[in-house]
Amino acid sequence: MATTLNPTHVSTTRVARRFQLSRLWQLAAAHLALLLYTALALFPIFLVVVNSFKNRRAIFAMPYALPTAETWDPVGYQTVFNNANFGLYFANSLIVTIGALVLILLAGTMASYALAEYRFPGNTLLGLYLALGIMVPIRLGTVGILRLVVALGLADTLWALILVYTASGLPLAIFIMTQFMRQVPRELKDAARVDGASEYRIYWMTLPLVRPALGTVAVFNMIPIWNDLWFPLILAPSENVKTVTLGAQVFLGQFVNDWNAVLASLTLAIIPVVVLYILFSRQLIRGLTAGAVK
């Protein structure tokens, strides 16, 4: 039976098997590369978190081991809680981030609604003017910003940070949301107009229809605002208005030789961000890839 087998048939199965084998090798190599890179991305974070719960001797003697009953020691966390007001820093960061996000979304949707909805002289020009800020980093205006903030009496206030982050977040927010606003069906708005709805009411009605864009803009702005060091350092360095990022920077600088405290404060700063990231990673990734990745 085997001898009568069609020779071309034999060769195609052999080719197919070899093809499958090389496929398998390729898959294994791809997984290996991805695993190695994932390890590289997470290992430093893992080391910090794990060692923050150990006593000083164990940190140096067995840095790769998980904490055991013997090596367990939360002394670093005690140092952090006794010496730095992370609760206050956290609240400041929350106020600044949420305040700026609300302003970006409100002012941004209003402006992009007007740009998308009405034809008025200078519409395109205004759109370009607002888009200028996408490519020009706001840090380069720091000298002017500090002068302005001091002149307005806003130095060392959270308002200074909120307004600066709003100004820097608006250009991209308006650019993205204008495109979404243009996709809202015209008939819907005209029907509402026939029913006598005011222009403000119609704007409010369109907001739920552009919800994905709102999510993208919010997630996009959230991380850089929360993580920024530059403007808190320059505009609001006082103890009572410090953000988490600046607070951590100052604390880490002061306690640089207290390994327990450094590791504990790093862990405290890492965990809320990573939890938030895991909660919002879908929106973030979808926003970053313009919806191409589900």
């Binding site: 205004l126 205006g141 720091t142 002017g144 910003i145 302005l148």
Partner: peptide, 28 residues
């Protein structure tokens, strides 16, 4: 030409952006 609601819609963004980004950049 420029109904009032268009100005209301644009004003917050244009004012904050101009005051805290464009003006400081030019001032610098």
């Amino acid at each position: 030409p420029f109904p009032i609601h268009i100005i209301v819609f644009l004003a917050p963004a244009v004012i904050i952006y101009t005051a805290f980004m464009i003006f400081p950049l030019l001032d610098s």
